[in-house]
């Protein structure tokens, strides 16, 4: 195996193992900790793909903000009782079966993948020449301006909704 393949093999195995650890831990705080390690691995994979901007955003947004909020809520709820409750419901064999079928399907098409040469103007060289951050910014604010704005409005609606729900009714 070449060095990049070894790297990818490490990330793939580590990420799968970490995801399993996240869902199987009894203590929710431990789950969040494994998820933090998982997010750092995802950022590592982005770095490996030369997407350093995405890697930084992955850490800042997911590890630094969203996961801290998770942790905050879990700590506030003080889920000590959860530790003794049975984690899995009766349907888990059905879920496992579907998972295995999906895995078999994915493995069976592995050999049929053909790698196409880079299409369009955003080739690896073009991105490298001006940096991934600049490229993402340009694409986001010109070609995909409308979807970007729509996404912002959706988020704004969610924020307003949360404020309305949390606010006390004034009689």
């Amino acid at each position: 195996m070449t060095l990049p393949q070894l790297f990818f093999a490490y990330f793939a195995t580590a990420m799968t193992t970490l995801s399993l650890l996240v869902v199987t831990r009894k203590n929710p705080v431990h789950s969040v900790m494994w998820m933090l390690v998982l997010f750092i691995h995802i950022a590592g994979l982005y770095l490996f793909l030369n997407a350093e901007f995405l890697a930084a955003i992955q850490i800042i947004v997911y590890a630094g903000a969203i996961l801290v909020l998770f942790l905050f809520v879990i700590m506030m709820l003080n889920l000590r009782k959860e530790e003794t409750v049975k984690k899995y419901q009766a349907q888990w064999p059905l879920g496992a079966g579907i998972g295995i079928i999906l895995a078999v399907f994915l493995v069976s098409i592995l050999g049929k993948i053909t790698v196409l040469p880079a299409l369009g103007k955003y080739s690896i060289e073009a991105i490298k020449s001006e940096g991934s951050m600049m490229t993402i910014g340009k694409v986001l604010y010109t070609e995909y301006l409308l979807p970007f704005e729509v996404a912002s409005i959706v988020l704004l609606v969610a924020i307003i909704g949360a404020v309305v729900l949390a606010k006390k009714r004034i009689e």
Partner: peptide
């Protein structure tokens, strides 16, 4: 000499917050 120097420092400072949160818990 990273191209994302500022973001790297911000990312690590947000990871550093875990020390205090987890230590407290």
């Amino acid at each position: 000499n990273l191209n994302i120097g500022i973001l790297y420092v911000l990312a690590l400072s947000s990871v550093g917050a875990y020390a205090v949160i987890l230590g407290g818990w």
